[in-house]
């Protein structure tokens, strides 16, 4: 397969030849090499056994803890001050989950997803393991898909970590009772848990486009930090553009446009419009940047 591994240079500079084959064998060791599902399973195992992933998740889970403790030790928050729902926390601990998901979406989430998505290809290239992954009869397209699904898995886990930690710490520090929705109706805590999961799903969908952008940027470089930083910068730029009223025509096209629309999951009945528009928009970004990543990755000379 000369075309799939063109211009390979055996002595790639700056790699750790000892570690590299080991990692590669660890991946393919769990199942028949080339089986897509086992490839995916091993990728997920590597991703979620990585200390960096756990550090990211712990940092995200620290947000609700910080909020809950801060509200606990400070005086009552007057309504209408601070982020939405902050004033409700003292009455109902479940609002910790909503508040922390709200404050984490604009910055912390894209930061964490940028790290994971930017690392996908460039991380392997930087470690010098990319060649070994491609030597296994996996194929570049499958590797790209597996890497993207791994990033998506992180997008699912991250908001869940925040939401569930928030609900847990809120229940530990504050009373828990029926939750007042934005429409003025109340739902029981079990239904509120469903809403938390719905919001987590909304956020996971919201981050799919950014993950695709990160994947594409990750195929552009062998320096993972560069891809991570670029992904985070792209998300910040998108959010800044979304704030400029002069660019109103552009707003529906920005991948961050619907990020804060998950409040619609807290209405009675649930307003699905933003969920649908968001899903459509993210699918467009996944298609465009997935295709770009494909074009770049299958034509690129793998040097490391």
């Amino acid at each position: 397969m000369p075309s799939s591994l063109p211009a390979e240079i055996p002595q790639a500079a700056g790699t750790a030849p000892q570690a590299a084959p080991q990692r590669a064998s660890k991946r393919s060791g769990s199942g028949a090499p080339g089986s897509g599902l086992s490839f995916l399973a091993s990728e997920l195992k590597v991703l979620f056994s990585r200390r960096r992933t756990w550090a990211l998740l712990l940092a995200l889970a620290a947000i609700p803890v910080l909020i809950a403790v801060a509200v606990k030790v400070s005086s009552a928050v007057p309504p209408g001050r601070g982020p939405a729902f902050l004033d409700r926390i003292t009455q109902n601990g479940l609002f910790v989950a909503f508040t922390s998901m709200l404050v984490s979406v604009p910055l912390f989430m894209p930061l964490a997803v940028g790290v994971v998505a930017g690392d996908t290809i460039a991380g392997e290239a930087g470690l010098g393991t990319l060649r070994y992954l491609l030597v296994a009869p996996a194929g570049r397209v499958r590797l790209l898909l597996v890497k993207y699904v791994g990033a998506l898995a992180f997008c699912v886990v991250a908001p869940l970590a925040i939401g569930l930690t928030g609900a847990a710490i809120g229940a530990a520090l504050f009373p828990v009772g029926p939750v007042t929705l934005l429409s003025g109706g109340v739902v029981q805590p079990a239904e509120a848990a469903v809403r938390i999961v719905l919001i987590a799903a909304y956020i996971a969908v919201s981050l799919a486009g950014l993950s695709a952008i990160g994947l594409f940027l990750s195929t552009m470089t062998v320096v993972p930090v560069g891809a991570m930083a670029a992904t985070v910068v792209v998300s910040v730029v998108s959010e800044v553009l979304d704030q400029l009223p002069q660019l109103e025509w552009l707003h529906p096209w920005l991948f961050s446009h619907y990020w804060l629309g998950f409040g619609d999951m807290l209405r009675q009945p649930v307003l699905w419009d933003s969920f649908g528009s968001n899903g459509l928009l993210q699918a467009g970004y996944v298609a465009v940047f997935g295709a770009l990543a494909y074009g770049r990755f299958v034509t690129k000379d793998i040097l490391s």
Binding site: G284, A287, V288, G290, A291, L292, Y294, G295, V298, T299
Partner: peptide, 15 residues
């Protein structure tokens, strides 16, 4: 190579 960039060109057009 040209063929492999085709999806990247086609996706925005389709959208």
């Amino acid at each position: 190579t040209w063929l492999r960039w085709l999806p990247a060109a086609a996706a925005p057009v389709v959208i």
